[in-house]
Computed example of a mutant assay.
Amino acid sequence: MNTSIDRILLEEDGYYPNHPFLPALIYRQAVDMPIDESEQLFKKHRWSNTWVGGVFDYHHYHSRTHEILALVEGSARLKLGGPNGRTVDVKKGDLIIIPAGVAHKNEWATDDFQVLAAYPFGESFDLKTGDKEEYEEALSQIPDAPAPAADPLLGENGPLMELWNRS
C-alpha cells in the first residue's frame, strides 16, 4: 500500500473512554474503487455489516466493536476522541479505522460526503453518546471488542495487524 498512515492515540476524559492502547488510524488515499468493490474487499477480510451514509453530527462511540469508515465521496472535518479530542480533515479515498470506545463526530462536511462503514466479523454496533451513566459499562465492554482478523484492505499481512499488535 503506497499511502501514509496517521496514528492517533486518544485519552479518556471521564465521558468518552476512547481506547486505552489502540490508536485510531487514517490510511490516506488508500481506497480507490467503487463502493461495491470496496464492500466485497472488506467482506473478504471479514469486515461486514456494511452501510453507506454520513457520520452523526454529535459525539458518539461504539463500545462493543471497532469500525471502519471508507470515504467514498466528498470531504469532512471529523472530531475524534470527544470534545477534547483531535480534529482531522479527511477526503474521498481515505480510510479511518476507529477502535472501540473512540468517540467521533462530523463537525463539517461537503454536501456529497458519504462513507462506507463496516465492522469486524459483521459485529452489531451499539451507540453511546458520552452520558456519564454509560461510561463504566463501556469501560468493561471495550476490552472485549473482537480484534479484527485482518486489515480491511490488505488482509492478514496488512499494516493494521502490526499497528494494533495483532500479527
Rank of each mutant, 00 (worst) to 15 (best):
residue 121 F to P: 01
residue 9 L to Y: 01
residue 119 Y to D: 01
residue 150 A to Q: 04
residue 112 D to G: 09
residue 80 L to Q: 01
residue 53 G to H: 12
residue 77 R to I: 15
residue 27 Y to W: 15
residue 118 A to D: 00
residue 32 D to C: 12
residue 20 P to Q: 11
residue 71 L to A: 10
residue 109 A to M: 06
residue 119 Y to C: 05
residue 39 E to S: 13
residue 6 D to Q: 11
residue 52 V to E: 00
residue 129 T to S: 03
residue 127 L to W: 10
residue 111 D to M: 09
residue 50 T to W: 09
residue 57 D to A: 15
residue 39 E to N: 10
residue 18 N to R: 06
residue 63 S to I: 03
residue 162 E to R: 09
residue 120 P to S: 12
residue 103 A to S: 15
residue 153 L to A: 09
residue 159 P to R: 13
residue 4 S to T: 15
residue 88 V to Y: 10
residue 31 V to T: 10
residue 15 Y to P: 02
residue 142 I to F: 05
residue 54 G to H: 08
residue 32 D to A: 14
residue 163 L to Y: 08
residue 87 T to C: 01
residue 129 T to E: 04
residue 40 Q to K: 14
residue 51 W to C: 08
residue 153 L to Q: 05
residue 114 Q to A: 13
residue 62 H to N: 08
residue 85 G to Y: 07
residue 11 E to W: 02
residue 105 K to I: 03
residue 52 V to R: 00
residue 50 T to C: 13
residue 54 G to R: 12
residue 13 D to S: 09
residue 121 F to D: 02
residue 152 P to T: 07
residue 60 H to E: 00
residue 35 I to L: 11
residue 6 D to V: 11
residue 115 V to L: 11
residue 113 F to P: 06
residue 133 E to N: 12
residue 15 Y to L: 15
residue 100 A to S: 13
residue 80 L to H: 00
residue 16 Y to D: 00
residue 140 S to R: 14
residue 147 A to N: 11
residue 84 N to I: 08
residue 160 L to Q: 04
residue 86 R to C: 04
residue 157 N to C: 04
residue 17 P to F: 05
residue 104 H to V: 10
residue 82 G to I: 00
residue 66 H to I: 03
residue 151 D to M: 13
residue 53 G to L: 14
residue 153 L to I: 15
residue 76 A to G: 10
residue 14 G to A: 01
residue 2 N to Q: 13
residue 28 R to K: 15
residue 96 I to S: 01
residue 116 L to G: 10
residue 144 D to A: 13
residue 167 S to C: 08
residue 105 K to H: 15
residue 137 E to A: 11
residue 127 L to D: 10
residue 91 K to D: 06
residue 6 D to G: 08
residue 80 L to R: 01
residue 106 N to D: 14
residue 43 K to I: 05
residue 39 E to Q: 13
residue 142 I to G: 00
residue 21 F to D: 15
residue 7 R to W: 02
residue 33 M to Y: 07
residue 51 W to R: 12
residue 137 E to D: 11
residue 41 L to T: 09
residue 67 E to P: 05
residue 9 L to W: 01
residue 2 N to G: 14
residue 152 P to W: 03
residue 26 I to R: 02
residue 119 Y to N: 04
residue 75 S to I: 05
residue 98 I to C: 12
residue 106 N to S: 14
residue 88 V to P: 06
residue 129 T to C: 04
residue 53 G to I: 14
residue 85 G to F: 08
residue 142 I to L: 09
residue 72 V to Y: 05
residue 117 A to P: 06
residue 111 D to H: 12
residue 71 L to H: 09
residue 72 V to G: 05
residue 74 G to H: 06
